[in-house]
Amino acid sequence: MSVNLLKNDELEQLKDYCLKHYGLNYEVWAEVSAIKTKDAIWLVNHQAEAFLCHEGVNEEYESIGLRCFSGVCFPYKITDGFVKIFDNEIKKKKLNLKESQARAMLKGESIPYEEVVGHDGYNLLFIGNTYLGIGLKKGDQLISQIPKALRSQLAKDLEIRNE
């Protein structure tokens, strides 16, 4: 895939977005470089970025660090990779779901707006302290973004825990 470092203005825009929407301080970006491909933004450490741009230039890469944003421009769609890399630094848009709501998300059903207190856009879904996946709040609905292939498996796991 063709690989480009995010330009300064693009990176600033991304940082501003993450501060506004997820409470992510600018300092957390000091450890990572942002790489843009056709359809995603990847975050990788600086050593890997340097290797990519100098020592490993002859090779073709299929993945670079963690795929943190799906799409390369506003509005940014966060992925599980974003949650993994920034983890506790994320302060906003964390929704704690009731068990029935978590089940609905895992069935692929949407939850009516009035039942959750959240913000428009992509939210992190939790059940208790455990991260479950991403939900998109759009209009009057919260729509599950948990990969379809995982939903039934995770729903089953949730049932077993509550037995």
Binding site: L43, A48, G56, E60, S63, G81, K84
Partner: peptide
């Protein structure tokens, strides 16, 4: 790699 949150890895395919 994604599941385990690995951020320093480049994947090649040869």
């Amino acid at each position: 790699l994604s599941r385990m949150g690995v951020s320093n890895c480049l994947v090649t395919m040869k």
